[in-house]
Simulated scan of single mutants.
Amino acid sequence: MTKQTTKRVALIIGGTGGIGKSVVEKLAKEGFAVAIHYASNQGKANDLVKAIINQDGEAISVGGDSSNEEAMKEVFHSVEEHFGGIDVVVNTAGIMLLSPIASLELTDLDKIYQTNIRGTFIVSKYAAQNIRSGGALINFSTSVTKTQFPTYGAYVASKAAVESMTLILARELRGKDITVNAVAPGPTATPLFLDGKTEEAIQQLAQATPLERLGQPEDSAEIVAFLAGPARWINGQVLFTNGGLA
């Protein structure tokens, strides 16, 4: 049964992750009704829904593998059924497996491809079909496409693909009044980034920026809220949000 809402509606893919959760919380505070997508952690998604509703917000959780076309089709359908439409889609879902190219296991390359490339393509496809006029699609890349850190080869290759499809989709949606952009964070203090790194490596990356700190998930959420709301003249761009990382 469709529930019409007077709020703008945002679907956040990967909404229980480090950056995804911050995006959910920020957009809810900005007055969006939010649909929180999860791949496997339904309990965390439902807890986030309850927290938002307890603060007089509107939220639902929706689950599914972002690389599965039928699952994503159902996710978009469920959000439209509940809220009456979709205005903003934010895709924060991604995996990062690090290895020198010479020793990378191709099974790991396939995993990265499934989530980061195929998943982004599927989400972008259904976003293009379903976002209402005046809306926005925001994909996620990485600043390492510019810094070229060793061991990031497969991950960066996948994110370069994300950037390319994002910029092309922005042009393909001419006349729809839908903006399509990518956010490319620098080193950000999330479980995805911190996993497997020594304290020394983390501190080196923190000192690499002129601001001398790691990014926080909230830094990326601020940019997403800008692109989802007032930034109607930013379209077909990659925004490098990295504190000045060269």
Rank of each mutant, 00 (worst) to 15 (best):
V90T: 07
E80P: 11
V123P: 00
A35E: 09
W233L: 05
Q237H: 07
K50F: 05
T16G: 09
K21F: 09
A201V: 09
I234C: 10
G15I: 11
G17P: 00
Q207S: 06
I138W: 11
P217I: 14
G84Q: 05
L137P: 06
T5L: 08
Q129G: 09
A136C: 06
P187K: 01
G175F: 14
F140L: 01
E212L: 10
V24E: 05
L109G: 12
A33H: 07
L214T: 14
S143Q: 05
T115Q: 07
L245Y: 03
P230A: 11
K111A: 14
P230C: 03
K26F: 08
G175T: 08
I178P: 10
Q42S: 15
I168C: 11
P217K: 15
A102M: 13
T179C: 00
N68H: 12
T145H: 01
G135D: 11
S141W: 03
D87T: 07
A28H: 15
F140Q: 00
R132T: 05
G186S: 06
N139H: 04
T92E: 05
T179M: 07
A93K: 04
N181H: 03
V49W: 13
N46L: 10
F121N: 12
K111S: 12
F240C: 01
L98S: 08
M1W: 10
N139T: 04
E58W: 03
T115K: 00
K26Y: 01
I178W: 00
G135N: 01
N68L: 02
Q148V: 01
S67F: 12
L245T: 04
E199N: 13
V49F: 13
S158Q: 00
E200S: 14
A39Y: 15
I168W: 06
S124I: 06
K73V: 00
L239F: 05
S103F: 12
K29Y: 00
I117W: 09
G196D: 04
D108T: 03
A201G: 03
I60E: 14
E69F: 01
G244A: 01
W233S: 05
P230R: 07
E212R: 11
T241K: 10
L11H: 11
L97G: 08
V49T: 11
V49I: 13
F121C: 09
F32H: 10
D110F: 12
A157Q: 12
S124D: 06
A221K: 07
L211I: 15
N46F: 07
W233N: 13
E218N: 04
K21C: 03
Q237N: 02
K21G: 03
F193S: 04
T107N: 09
V62N: 10
Q148P: 03
F32A: 00
K26D: 11
A208G: 00
F226T: 00
F140S: 04
N91V: 04
K26V: 03
P150G: 12
K176C: 06
L137C: 05
Y38R: 12
V62E: 07
V183Q: 02
E30K: 15
G15E: 12
A189L: 09
A225E: 01
E218K: 10
D87R: 10
G119Q: 01
R232E: 08
G215N: 12
S141E: 00
K197C: 02
T107Y: 03
Q55S: 02
I60S: 15
E81K: 15
K146D: 10
G243N: 05
I12Y: 10
A71Y: 08
R118G: 09
Q55P: 07
T107C: 02
G14H: 02
D108K: 08
Q114I: 10
T92R: 09
D65N: 13
S220V: 12
A231S: 06
T241Q: 13
